[in-house]
Simulated assay, not measured.
Amino acid sequence: MQQIIDFILELDKLKGVTRKTRPLGLDRQENSAEHSWQIAMLAASLAPYAPRPVDINRVIGMLLVHDIGEIDTGDTIVYATEGWEERKAAELVAVTRIFSLLPDAQATQFMVLWQEFEDGNSDEARFAHAADRAMPVLLNLANNGQSWRENGISHDRVIARIAPPIKAGCPALWDYLEAELARAQALGYFDPI
């Protein structure tokens, strides 16, 4: 029991990892714990739109563990283009440390989910990636492009980073977002670069 409690208390640190997007109606940045919860709910809600049937419990599990490494590494904006290999190596070290707080069987179970998400090869991982990539977009659309404008993110950069994983994981969601992103571009939500 103590190992589980130690693990859960370690996860509390995820609440202190700030991201670049603001929650709706709040004058602060969201944190990674909020993000993980929200994308798990997004995936559960979108399950009927998966291109192939998915084990939604597995998807939710991936989404709940995918950013745990940020406790040690911090968050990097999804539109960053450099240093991903180093970042992923650091996250692996972090999740290995954090999951090792658990009894071996649970540590292995969570590591398998984390690695499946990272590899992105299963239907569940592709669907999870679609939800992960979509949520910052949905918040930016609702916040008049707040994070995009503040961080100098262009429409083309958003499309290049999010279109492939969302198309692969949930084409119906991409159809919706593609139209919304075109509308947002017309409204000036992006850095003009």
Results as ranks from 00 to 15, higher is better:
Gln3Pro: 10
Ile8Gly: 01
Lys13His: 11
Lys15Ser: 12
Gly16Leu: 10
Val17Asn: 00
Val17Met: 04
Thr18Val: 05
Gly25Ser: 08
Gln29Trp: 14
Ser32Asp: 04
Ser32Val: 12
Ser36Asn: 12
Ile39Ala: 00
Met41Tyr: 03
Asp55Ser: 11
Val59Tyr: 03
Leu63Gly: 03
Val65Asp: 01
Ile68Val: 09
Gly69Val: 10
Gly69Trp: 06
Ile71Gly: 07
Asp72Phe: 05
Gly74His: 04
Thr76Asn: 02
Thr76Arg: 12
Gly83Asn: 02
Gly83Met: 11
Val95Lys: 00
Pro103Met: 14
Pro103Trp: 11
Ala105His: 06
Gln106Val: 13
Phe110Gly: 00
Val112Pro: 07
Val112Tyr: 02
Val112Ile: 13
Trp114Arg: 04
Glu118Phe: 08
Ser122Asn: 08
Asp123Val: 09
Arg126Lys: 13
Ala130Phe: 01
Asp132Arg: 02
Ala134Asn: 00
Leu141Tyr: 04
Ala142Gly: 02
Asn143Val: 02
Ser147Ala: 10
Trp148Pro: 00
Gly152Leu: 02
Ile162Asp: 10
Ile162Thr: 15
Ile162Gln: 14
Ala163Arg: 15
Pro164Arg: 02
Pro164Ile: 07
Pro171Val: 15
Trp174Pro: 00
Tyr176Val: 07
Leu181Val: 05
Leu181Gln: 06
Arg183Met: 11
Arg183Leu: 12
Ala184Tyr: 03
